[in-house]
Write a protein that binds this DNA or RNA. Structure first.
Lengths: 207, 207
DNA sequence: GACGGAAATTGAACTGAACTCAGGTTGATC
DNA sequence: GATCAACCTGAGTTCAGTTCAATTTCCGTC
């Protein structure tokens, strides 16, 4: 069924994880386009060409970061909602879970949502395309997560009947729109954002 | 006060408008990164180098498109809301206005919101930086448009008191999140989207 | 403790798209 | 029909991403 990409099992001296971490920092702070691939190499402490042992291209690395973040988001959603029967409470839990993130994950979110458009068109190389397809699947999974939650609420009569797909996409859109502007160093603490959005989402789907 | 960039007055044989139009088509359909600057030239019917008579760089062209779109959005908001005293009705009118767009404007919206991150960091060249600064100002203007609308409603007692800035950003985020996925050729008509989002926004800010 | 082989790394060379430069055309105005 | 600015071009430069051919490192095995 859901065929997760097998993470290349890390040999003991693999720098894959280090590269991903460095790339997240660079891409998240400086932006993907503006950071030189060679800078990532420097930060890890290897030559530029060594990067190609782990990733087919700069974009392949980006797509991998995006896929991993999507996987995390989906897992977190599932974990937060699976034991909650009341739809409103489940919705609240899902929103809160979406904002329970480390600073590093904030960067990953920013990277992910700033490059969503990459997932629409096909890629030329094999491994890039594999990551892209997998990421697209995960996007649809996450969308279904939210939609299903709403459908459940509607069929239980807790939420008024509306186009669940459209409303689900909207709720999700509202939640992730935060990653455009939120900065850990900024004036608004994430807890405050979380609280306001949680309320907004509940009102959106409720009467 | 608000110093609009003076649009270079078009000489009779200027191709600036044609370049902008072609660029919107290319960037909107193929994405900015993936479209070759020379393709835009071809589509207009000039050599690549002629582009540099009108724009300092590919990015300068992109920033111009973004600024123009922001200007349009702000003007449309103002026009739609200026004569409406009731805050709820004004909010409804503003949302509807946001979705009263041509197919070409849909592309501009997509381009704008896919490259918002460009506006955060400074640019190296003069004219790029000028466009960037102006665009940033317009972003803040638009944010203030929505926030002020909420503040008015709150002070009139129509909307419950909440962090207007945060809520304004959220409403705006919800509205523009649509441009990520909406396609004129897709299954969902924009009118339907507009209606659902209008309701969602009203519920978000209301009791 | 030499040996084979996979994983990891490298310097030098290549590519292609954005951009520069130095000059050439066009056409409105006097 | 001279002038001047707007407009355009072909030939070359740059630079980040990428490829290539070859080497080093490390681990298990004989």
């Amino acid at each position: 069924m859901a065929t997760r990409i097998v993470e290349p099992e890390a040999g003991p001296r693999s720098k894959r994880a280090a590269i991903l971490a460095a790339a997240v920092d660079c891409f998240g702070e400086t932006s993907f386009e503006a950071t030189k691939w060679s800078t990532v190499a420097e930060r890890v402490g290897i030559g530029q060409t060594a990067l190609y042992h782990y990733f087919e291209s700069k974009t392949h690395c980006l797509l991998t970061i995006m896929r991993l973040e999507l996987q995390r988001s989906h897992d977190k959603f599932t974990e937060a909602t699976e034991d909650v029967e009341d739809p409103t409470e489940a919705l609240r839990a899902a929103v809160r879970a979406a904002y329970e993130v480390s600073d590093h994950e904030v960067l990953q979110m920013r990277i992910l949502h700033n490059h969503m458009d990459l997932l629409s068109g096909p890629r030329k190389s094999k491994r890039e395309e594999a990551e892209r397809v997998e990421a697209r699947k995960l996007v649809q999974l996450v969308e279904r997560d939210w939609t299903n939650l709403l459908v459940r609420g509607m069929s239980m009569g807790v939420f008024p009947l509306r186009d669940a797909q459209l409303l689900g996409a909207s709720v999700l859109g509202l939640i992730v729109s935060v990653w455009r502007w939120y900065r850990p160093s900024g004036p608004t603490p994430l807890a405050e954002v979380s609280e306001l959005i949680e309320g907004a989402c509940v009102r959106m789907v409720a009467t």
